[in-house]
C-alpha cells in the first residue's frame, strides 16, 4: 500500500471531527462517515489518526472500515458509477448492464479506471424499482438502462458533456 503523508490541515480536519463526537470510541462509525464525506475515502493514514484520537486500536478501526460496504479505502472515480443490483433490477437485466460496464471500462466491481475518471460499484436497491434496471452516476439516476446504452452513457462523460455534480460536502 503506498504511503500517503497527510497534511496538517487534513489531520486537523480529522481531529476536529473526532472532537465533535467527544473523542468517544463508540462514535467510531459516525466519525468514519463524516470523515469520508470530507475526504472522499478512508486511507490507512486517516484511520491511524482516527484510532489515536478515539483512543482505539488501528486494527479495530480497520475491522470496522472493512466490515461496512459504505466505507472505502480507495478514492472513488471522478464519476462514480453504481449499478443497482436489487432484485427488481436484477430480474430486469441489471447483470447484463453491469457486465457491459465492466467490459467497456475494463475494470472490476470496486475498482477505478486508470485515469481516475470512473469507478464501478454495485448497490442494493435505490428504491427506484419502477425504473429498473437503474444505474446511478454521481447524483444522476439513469432508469431502464439497456446494455446497448452503456457505451453512449460513458461517452457522454468522457467527452465532458456532463459535469461532475457530486457534492463534495
Amino acid at each position: 500500500m503506498p504511503k500517503i503523508k497527510l497534511s496538517d490541515s487534513t489531520i486537523n480536519i480529522i481531529k476536529g471531527i473526532c472532537a465533535e463526537f467527544q473523542n468517544k470510541e463508540s462514535e467510531l462509525i459516525n466519525v468514519l462517515h463524516k470523515t469520508q464525506v470530507k475526504l472522499g475515502y478512508l486511507p490507512a493514514e486517516v484511520q491511524e489518526v482516527i484510532a489515536r484520537e478515539l483512543h482505539s486500536s488501528v486494527a479495530r478501526v480497520y475491522g470496522v472500515v472493512t466490515f461496512y460496504s459504505f466505507f472505502t479505502m480507495i478514492p472513488k472515480g471522478e464519476f462514480p458509477i453504481s449499478i443497482c443490483m436489487g432484485t427488481a433490477c436484477y430480474v430486469r437485466g441489471a447483470e447484463q448492464v453491469l457486465s457491459e460496464f465492466k467490459r467497456q471500462l475494463k475494470v472490476e466491481v470496486g475498482e477505478s479506471t486508470s485515469d481516475g475518471k470512473f469507478s464501478l460499484n454495485c448497490l442494493r436497491c435505490v428504491g427506484a424499482c419502477g425504473l429498473a434496471p437503474v444505474v446511478t452516476i454521481g447524483e444522476k439516476v439513469y432508469g431502464r438502462v439497456a446494455p446497448t446504452q452503456v457505451k453512449e452513457i460513458i461517452a457522454e462523460y468522457r467527452q465532458g458533456n456532463i459535469q461532475n455534480d457530486v457534492k463534495t460536502d
Binding site: S26, I29, G63, V64, F67, Y68, S69, F70, F71, R124
Partner: peptide, 25 residues
Amino acid sequence: LRYGAGAFVCGEETALIHSMEGLRG
C-alpha cells in the same frame, strides 16, 4: 440519528445495536 454503513446483517437487532455502538455489525 445513527447511520448504517451498508451491512444487511445490521437489520438483525443485536447486530444493529453493535453497529450503533461503533462496532462491527
